[in-house]
Design a protein around this nucleic acid. Structure first.
Length: 425
RNA sequence: GGAAAGAUGGCCGAGUGGUCGAAGGCGCACGCCUGGAAAGCGUGUGUACCCCAAAAGGGUAUCAAGGGUUCGAAUCCCUUUCUUUCCGCCA
């Protein structure tokens, strides 16, 4: 959520940055917010004055009664009746105005960083760099969903029986590969200084709001309605929310956390060949890295996170590219996002395996995550960042396809200590 | 799921209708004292919003959350959430 302070103090800047994300009616919304907040301010000043008089009158009534001056007390009581009516009306209007402001505020996405390129969709993203070697596949190379069946390592149909489409069952060496990847990613993250967390995989409404999934992506999360809990779409939600309503000291930075969780996404509206096999699932495994940073250091931190993710795909020997997302393709909450894609040779396309973002104060404002400079009394909003390091399914898809040989599927050297085998056959 | 007791500042803890503008303690910060430190003494110590150009200063709210009673609520009433203990169930 953008702050009222920024909207008021940098109105033109806010409007022009929102245009990069192609926000509809941004200028009208911003101006309406500014006007409503001006009204709210006025009303509060009035109401505070009324309450002040009410408090003083009540106190004097106490004194009058103590001194037996009942008549004067009754007179004063009449006056408080008027004051109470006035404050009730102001309270009502203020609550209404505050709600209007809030309703408008949550429709505005984060401002894109100055380096975010213009654009409307995926085709306008900018390739920052590429790495790894493109594989040369043998004759008759198969897509991963056929390899999965051939080696009996992932069973999509069985998942349909147990749950539904998009809930695959990993079996045998496939199950072991999942566990290996999770451990490999967690070990690498902790080696890089991230503290390991195992969070709940269901969160309450407040947590969903704080990181920006609610109300914007209401329909994308599985909702356990009886208890009003949501299945996490990413570990980002519970892990970042650890610091909801927390005031840190500047010397607490950086806060670095990592977590493995299964992730649950309804993916309403997805269909077609993009959802084949592991390309898009309702449940998948992911290791996430999350950082809380001092605003002066958050872009340095973003670079470090990108380097971390890059080292993972490099060590997995996968061909990859890094994209700087354009305004139109960025998420609601992000100020700057880099996507990692690995090349899926048998499908002949790039698959997104990681998204690394700086949210600046957008999430922090929603969750009231603040800090103080040492020796300073003022609180400021912290910056939050997160990135996948990494999401498993598409990594697995690429590993299976790119490493297929007539003898079986070769496991990258770095994973072998984790899998306990060097080939899937 | 049933029963009971609870929820007060960073922490402990007092407070059953008006001097609560929340006692006292711990912690923390600063100062005094000291050769230095400890102890001791003194002062200060939450958050949010509003007024003020700013600072100083002032106002309002905040005792789990929301609503109610009252001129006045941490205190009384209602609802919700959570915690603890006992019972039940249980990986």
């Amino acid at each position: 959520m953008l702050t009222l302070k920024q909207i008021e103090e940098q109105r033109d800047f806010v409007v022009s940055r929102l245009a990069v994300k192609h926000v509809k009616n941004a200028e009208e919304t911003v101006d309406r917010i500014i006007e409503l907040n001006r009204l709210r301010r006025q009303m509060q000043a009035q109401n505070d004055a009324v309450l002040c008089e009410l408090n003083q009158t009540s106190k004097s009534i106490g004194m009058l009664l103590k001194n037996g001056k009942t008549d004067e007390a009754d007179e004063a009581k009449k006056h408080t009746g008027e004051l109470k009516a006035a404050t009730a009306e102001l309270d009502r209007k203020m609550a209404e105005t505050a709600q209007q402001i809030q309703d408008l505020l949550v429709t505005l996405p984060n401002l894109p960083h100055i380096s975010v390129p213009e654009g409307y969709g995926a085709e306008d993203n900018v390739v920052v760099r590429m790495g790894g070697k493109m594989p040369e596949l043998p004759e008759g190379a198969l897509p991963h969903w056929e390899l999965a069946r051939k080696y009996d390592i992932i069973d999509f149909e069985l998942g349909v029986k147990l749950t539904g489409a998009g809930f695959p069952v990993y079996k045998n060496q496939g199950a072991r590969l999942q566990r290996a990847l999770i451990n490999f990613f967690l070990d690498r993250a902790t080696a890089a200084g991230y503290h390991e967390i195992e969070p709940p995989v269901m969160v309450n409404e407040q947590s969903g709001f704080a990181t920006g999934q609610l109300p914007d992506k209401e329909g994308q999360m599985y909702h356990a309605e009886v208890d009003n809990y949501y299945l996490v779409p990413t570990a980002e939600v519970p892990v970042t929310n650890i610091y909801r309503d927390v005031i840190l000291s500047a010397e607490d930075f950086p806060v670095k956390m990592t977590a493995y969780t299964p992730c649950f996404r309804r993916e309403a509206g997805s269909y077609g060949k993009d959802v084949r096999g592991l390309n898009r699932l309702h449940q998948f495994d992911k290791v996430e890295i999350v950082r809380l940073e001092h605003p002066s250091n958050s872009y340095q931190a973003l670079d470090e996170m990108i380097q971390h993710v890059e080292s993972l795909v490099t060590d997995l020997e996968l061909p990859y590219r890094i994209l700087r997302l354009c305004g139109g393709d960025m998420s609601f909450t992000s100020a700057l996002t880099f996507d990692f894609e690995v090349y899926s040779a048998a499908q002949g396309k790039w698959l997104e395996v990681s998204s690394v973002s700086n949210f600046e104060t957008f999430q922090a404002n929603r969750m009231k995550l603040r800090f103080k400079e040492v020796g300073d009394k003022k609180t400021q909003l912290a910056h939050t960042l997160n990135g996948s390091a990494l999401a498993l399914p598409r990594i697995v898809a690429a590993l299976l396809e790119n490493n297929q040989t007539p003898e079986g599927i070769r496991i990258p050297a770095v994973l072998q200590p984790y899998t306990g085998f060097d080939i899937i056959r």
